[in-house]
Amino acid sequence: MASHIGKLPVAIPAGVEVTINGQEFSAKGPKGSDAFEIPEGITAQVENNEVVLTPADDERSTRAKHGLARSIVASIVKGVHDGYSKKLQIVGTGYRAQLKGKSIEFSLGYSHTITVDPPEGISFEVPDANTVIVNGTDKQAVGQAAANIRKLRAPEPYKGKGIKYADERIRRKAGKAGK
């Protein structure tokens, strides 16, 4: 029995070119290109403008990798066609970000500024001083770059100051009881 997720074909949108060479899967689209090594025991082929992955045997480890491989292939196809982005908000008096070339310079209440260079395949946007958008074709790399930026000054629970994801809610704690 194969994976329920792995059985689903991955639709290839217009403008995306998919190449399968043995176990090497690669996709090229308007936003860039990406590649993935399909695990042993799983075969992939393009049928009717869709990528279909099939397990060679019914071994438990192959079934587990089957669904994972299909999910990774789907995220690569979506990434080269649409791209991924994470929006971060900076909350706090005097906390701000500004673009310096391709890098971002943060003022986060420390005695110094912090400069963050984008990893390969990642780009930054700073629409205003309190918003940073991380863009790229690789879902994992975009998430990791956003997490690294958030880690510079994680939101604290008392005043909510720090860098947070745009859709994140910070659970606030009550401060000391006043006399």
Score class of each variant (00 low, 15 high):
residue 31 K to W: 01
residue 31 K to N: 02
residue 32 G to Y: 00
residue 35 A to S: 14
residue 35 A to V: 10
residue 36 F to P: 00
residue 36 F to A: 03
residue 36 F to R: 00
residue 37 E to W: 07
residue 38 I to V: 04
residue 39 P to W: 01
residue 39 P to S: 00
residue 40 E to S: 05
residue 40 E to R: 04
residue 41 G to I: 03
residue 41 G to N: 02
residue 41 G to W: 01
residue 41 G to E: 00
residue 42 I to R: 00
residue 42 I to M: 01
residue 44 A to W: 02
residue 44 A to R: 01
residue 46 V to L: 06
residue 47 E to R: 10
residue 48 N to F: 07
residue 50 E to Q: 14
residue 51 V to E: 04
residue 51 V to K: 03
residue 52 V to D: 09
residue 53 L to A: 00
residue 53 L to T: 01
residue 53 L to P: 01
residue 54 T to W: 02
residue 55 P to A: 03
residue 56 A to N: 13
residue 56 A to V: 15
residue 58 D to W: 09
residue 58 D to R: 13
residue 59 E to D: 15
residue 60 R to N: 12
residue 60 R to T: 12
residue 62 T to F: 01
residue 62 T to C: 02
residue 62 T to A: 04
residue 62 T to Q: 01
residue 62 T to I: 06
residue 63 R to F: 12
residue 65 K to L: 13
residue 66 H to K: 00
residue 66 H to E: 01
residue 67 G to Q: 02
residue 68 L to C: 11
residue 68 L to Q: 14
residue 72 I to W: 04
residue 72 I to K: 03
residue 72 I to N: 01
residue 72 I to F: 02
residue 73 V to H: 02
residue 74 A to E: 09
residue 74 A to Q: 08
residue 77 V to Y: 05
residue 78 K to Y: 10
residue 78 K to F: 10
residue 79 G to F: 02
residue 79 G to Y: 00
residue 80 V to T: 02
residue 82 D to G: 10
residue 83 G to Q: 06
residue 84 Y to T: 08
residue 84 Y to H: 09
residue 85 S to R: 15
residue 85 S to M: 13
residue 85 S to F: 15
residue 86 K to Q: 15
residue 86 K to P: 14
residue 86 K to Y: 14
residue 87 K to A: 09
residue 88 L to V: 10
residue 88 L to H: 09
residue 89 Q to I: 15
residue 90 I to W: 04
residue 91 V to D: 13
residue 92 G to Q: 08
residue 93 T to I: 13
residue 93 T to E: 15
residue 94 G to Q: 07
residue 95 Y to T: 10
residue 97 A to H: 04
residue 98 Q to I: 11
residue 98 Q to T: 12
residue 98 Q to F: 15
residue 98 Q to M: 14
residue 99 L to D: 09
residue 99 L to S: 09
residue 100 K to T: 14
residue 101 G to D: 12
residue 103 S to Q: 15
residue 103 S to P: 14
residue 103 S to L: 12
residue 103 S to D: 15
residue 105 E to N: 08
residue 105 E to R: 06
residue 106 F to C: 04
residue 106 F to P: 03
residue 107 S to G: 09
residue 107 S to T: 15
residue 107 S to M: 10
residue 108 L to H: 05
residue 108 L to M: 06
residue 109 G to R: 04
residue 110 Y to T: 13
residue 112 H to P: 12
residue 113 T to Y: 12
residue 113 T to F: 12
residue 115 T to Y: 08
residue 116 V to T: 10
residue 118 P to C: 06
residue 118 P to I: 08
residue 118 P to S: 06
residue 120 E to C: 05
residue 120 E to S: 10
residue 121 G to R: 02
residue 122 I to G: 02
residue 123 S to W: 07
residue 123 S to Y: 09
residue 123 S to A: 08
residue 124 F to Y: 14
residue 126 V to K: 08
residue 126 V to D: 07
residue 126 V to L: 07
residue 127 P to Y: 02
residue 129 A to H: 13
residue 129 A to Q: 13
residue 130 N to C: 09
residue 131 T to L: 05
residue 131 T to E: 04
residue 133 I to P: 05
residue 134 V to W: 04
residue 135 N to S: 07
residue 136 G to P: 05
residue 136 G to S: 01
residue 137 T to K: 06
residue 140 Q to G: 12
residue 142 V to F: 00
residue 145 A to D: 03
residue 147 A to R: 13
residue 148 N to T: 05
residue 148 N to S: 12
residue 148 N to R: 11
residue 150 R to F: 10
residue 150 R to G: 08
residue 150 R to W: 08
residue 151 K to P: 06
residue 152 L to F: 05
residue 153 R to V: 11
residue 153 R to T: 13
residue 154 A to K: 13
residue 154 A to P: 15
residue 154 A to W: 11
